[in-house]
């Protein structure tokens, strides 16, 4: 019954393995900043040596690791609070998304159920539509209210 989904599982496993290879194993065969004479080597000993970061300790230079600000010295932090302009819009989106999850089983049997559930669904859809209209009239879709 679930044999149709095996390909998805294999995709998941293969992708995770290949991404591990890309991020951990492939960089370890290449040249390093702290070892400028080193060349690309596929030898097992060299790969192992690079994997444990023996010859390339993590950088200590703090300027190197600062957040990027177009060449300026990064000042301040993001802080705890960020002004989200579209908070109400995101609430509307959550409302609509639950709506869609409820409507998909109806659409599955649409032809069989016929006209009356269709009209009921349109009424059901018109309620969040009215919420969008109300939010628009209140000015929540503008950049600054």
């Amino acid at each position: 019954m679930l044999d149709g989904y095996i390909a998805l599982l294999i995709t998941l496993v293969l992708m995770v393995l290949s991404l591990y290879a890309i991020f951990a194993i492939l960089p370890s065969i290449s040249k390093k900043r702290y070892d400028p004479s080193g060349k690309i080597s596929f030898k097992f000993a060299d790969v192992l040596k690079n994997l444990v970061n023996e010859s390339n300790p993590p950088v200590k230079d703090t300027r190197y690791l600062e957040p990027y600000e177009s060449g300026e010295v990064a000042k301040g932090d993001l802080g705890k609070y960020v002004n989200v302009q579209y908070y109400i819009v995101i609430l509307l989106f959550a409302l609509f998304d639950i709506d869609m999850a409820l409507l998909l089983p109806w659409a599955f049997d649409f032809k069989y159920l016929g006209l009356i559930p269709f009209i009921e669904t349109l009424l059901f859809l018109s309620m969040p539509m009215f919420a969008v209209f109300y939010a628009m009239k209140e000015g929540y879709l503008r950049w600054l209210k």
Partner: peptide
Amino acid sequence: DVSFEVPMMITILALVMMASG
């Protein structure tokens, strides 16, 4: 993302409705 995903879902819903016949 929140601006385009609801119309996308409703068009998919219309597609499923038409395919149900």
